[in-house]
Computed example of a mutant assay.
Amino acid sequence: MSDAGQPPLFAPTVAQIERLALEALGRLPDPFRSHLSNVVLFVEEFADDRILKEMEIDDPFGLTGLYSGRPVGEAEQTGDSPPTVHLFRRPLLDEWVETGVPLDALITHVVVHEIGHHFGLSDVDMQVLEDMVAS
């Protein structure tokens, strides 16, 4: 008996979420990919309390991803940390279960949205980019 088409028996791990995120980044068109070499990707269980407080989010399940850093084109300042994209595993998994959206599509959506901040894209531009990456 084959398990093909069956849902996983265990929730995806941090490493599996990271792999899906890296695959999404790899599908970005070249003009975008070429500006991502200094962006650091983190996958964590939840956003820390400091981030939630700064963003005025009470529920730790309310934040699936976050971009930190200066957008492309802004002058770097001495002492700047590299730009980062954080994905938060538990909120992503909750949204996956609640919406029924395939996990790879959900992670692609969040990754493109956060990378969109790196490029200073509008929501409309992010949607166009997401459509390109999903194809």
Rank of each mutant, 00 (worst) to 15 (best):
residue 65 G to T: 01
residue 75 A to E: 15
residue 126 M to L: 03
residue 37 S to D: 14
residue 78 T to L: 15
residue 17 I to E: 01
residue 40 V to K: 15
residue 53 K to L: 14
residue 90 R to V: 06
residue 129 L to D: 08
residue 15 A to H: 09
residue 68 S to I: 14
residue 7 P to N: 05
residue 87 L to T: 02
residue 34 S to E: 15
residue 72 V to W: 15
residue 133 V to F: 06
residue 40 V to I: 13
residue 26 G to H: 02
residue 12 P to A: 02
residue 94 D to V: 09
residue 41 L to H: 00
residue 104 D to H: 12
residue 73 G to L: 07
residue 58 D to W: 12
residue 44 E to V: 04
residue 122 S to D: 10
residue 18 E to H: 07
residue 65 G to C: 03
residue 112 V to A: 09
residue 25 L to S: 06
residue 28 L to I: 06
residue 123 D to P: 06
residue 125 D to E: 15
residue 114 E to Q: 04
residue 94 D to M: 11
residue 29 P to A: 11
residue 32 F to T: 00
residue 31 P to A: 04
residue 80 D to K: 07
residue 21 A to H: 01
residue 73 G to Y: 09
residue 24 A to F: 08
residue 81 S to P: 14
residue 91 P to W: 00
residue 40 V to Y: 12
residue 132 M to D: 14
residue 39 V to M: 08
residue 85 V to T: 02
residue 81 S to F: 14
residue 33 R to N: 04
residue 66 L to M: 11
residue 109 H to F: 11
residue 8 P to W: 03
residue 42 F to R: 07
residue 7 P to R: 08
residue 12 P to Y: 05
residue 121 L to R: 10
residue 133 V to P: 09
residue 9 L to P: 07
residue 114 E to C: 00
residue 79 G to I: 03
residue 32 F to S: 01
residue 37 S to H: 15
residue 58 D to A: 15
residue 130 E to C: 09
residue 133 V to L: 10
residue 85 V to G: 02
residue 85 V to K: 05
residue 65 G to V: 00
residue 65 G to N: 03
residue 115 I to H: 00
residue 109 H to S: 14
residue 30 D to G: 08
residue 2 S to E: 15
residue 84 T to A: 14
residue 22 L to T: 04
residue 4 A to L: 14
residue 44 E to K: 06
residue 60 P to R: 13
residue 36 L to W: 02
residue 18 E to C: 07
residue 85 V to M: 05
residue 70 R to F: 05
residue 63 L to V: 07
residue 12 P to C: 00
residue 53 K to C: 12
residue 36 L to F: 01
residue 125 D to Y: 13
residue 86 H to K: 12
